[in-house]
Design a protein around this nucleic acid. Structure first.
Length: 328
DNA sequence: AAACAGTTTTGCACCACAAGACTAT
DNA sequence: GCATAGTCTTGTGGTGCAAAACTGT
């Protein structure tokens, strides 16, 4: 803990209604901190109430700013503290936070920001309008719209889409994950964070694990381009490789309704996209985490080791006062 | 601008074994 | 068709290493 914070409470503010769960939103109308459950329950009919996220740093004050680089909602105090820490942090682009009802209708924090880019991306995905599709790279270069800095979300999405087109898809199990995964993706993280080895952060290149399962195919947009084979090589780091290959012949015979349906379908799939690892079997994950390893590899658990583990765990329980996950 | 060396980043194989999927009875 | 037993396949995470990418000279 940093000095000077010793007197600051570090536990999250509990929900003012149920008082059993940490609050996640602050309702300005109720002037109350609410957990997700209570928020949903109370505002099912009071949809006009303005709510904002609780500060992700202190978890005790309503968020006032949204840091695009950190993808974090911060209260004024934490915002000042964090972004005054060093010159790099001070360059983070922050915007006043919008009420959830207005800014988060689609459960996507970036939707309001990325709408224009989304239009471009949708268009580029469909490639139905030759004029627009031909200008996609240019529109992409103008991503400083709305006064925001470089919009990594949109540009990297292009790359992600490109990978789908190339038949290389990220491991994505849209519907059968056991462990809940975070829906919102903040690709800006990789731009300014200095994670030594981010497991699944996106910093310009997506894991190229090739998985051509039927589930993955289901994620690939059902466009005429699906059958187009594109030899795609990974672009140099820091560059955005939109479509470096030869121009693709795309039929432009969709009716307006057809197009609208495709756009809707695309947007639904875009919302469902996940770029972080999805655990299909939580039990296997739990077991893997408890297994003995030698240099990262799973090691055989001999009876002796099991016995030692047993002794060690019982020692821990008696001496420290808490148990560890029992070994199998 | 090109070539080279050094550094950093990235992707992937490896391991054991419980759980799930599948097959036979 | 259903139940059970047996066999096969899958998925899980931390680490090391090789290759690629990047940076500086």
């Amino acid at each position: 803990m940093l000095e000077g914070q010793a007197t600051t409470p570090t536990w999250p503010r509990m929900c003012d209604t149920c008082r059993s769960v940490p609050s996640t939103v602050f309702c300005r109308s109720h002037t109350a901190f609410l957990c997700a459950t209570c928020d949903t329950r109370l505002h099912v009919s009071l949809t006009w109430h303005e709510r904002v996220w609780v500060c992700e740093a202190c978890e005790r004050a309503p968020a006032a700013f949204l840091c695009k680089a950190d993808a974090a909602s911060l209260c004024a105090s934490c915002d000042a503290d964090i972004h005054a820490a060093n010159p790099l942090a001070s360059r983070h682009h922050r915007v006043p936070i919008l009420p959830i009802a207005a800014a988060n209708n689609n459960n996507n924090d970036d939707d309001d920001v990325a709408d224009i880019d989304d239009e471009d991306e949708t268009a580029s995905w469909l490639l139905l309008n030759p004029i627009k599709s031909a200008t996609v790279p240019n529109t992409n270069n103008n991503n400083n719209n709305n006064g925001f800095l470089y919009n990594a979300a949109a540009t990297t999405d292009h790359y992600a889409q490109h990978q789908h087109f190339a038949g290389v898809s990220q491991k994505s199990y849209a519907g059968d994950s056991v462990v809940p995964v975070q829906q919102h993706q903040h690709f800006q993280l990789g731009l300014e964070f200095d994670n030594s080895k981010p497991a699944f952060s996106y910093n310009g290149s997506v894991s190229q694990s090739v998985s051509v399962s039927s589930m993955d195919i289901g994620v690939v947009p059902e466009s005429p381009m699906r059958d187009v084979s594109i030899a795609h090589t990974r672009p140099p780091k820091g560059t955005i490789d939109l479509f470096s290959g030869p121009p693709i012949q795309v039929p432009s015979h969709f009716s307006p309704m057809d197009r609208e349906a495709r756009v809707l379908r695309y947007r639904e799939k875009k919302k469902m996209r996940k770029f972080e690892k999805t655990i299909r079997y939580a039990s296997r994950k739990a077991y893997a985490e408890t297994r003995p390893r030698i240099k990262g590899r799973f090691a055989k658990r001999t009876d002796v080791e099991a016995e030692v583990d047993q002794m060690f765990s019982t020692t821990l329980i008696t001496e420290v006062g808490y148990g560890i996950v029992p070994s199998f």
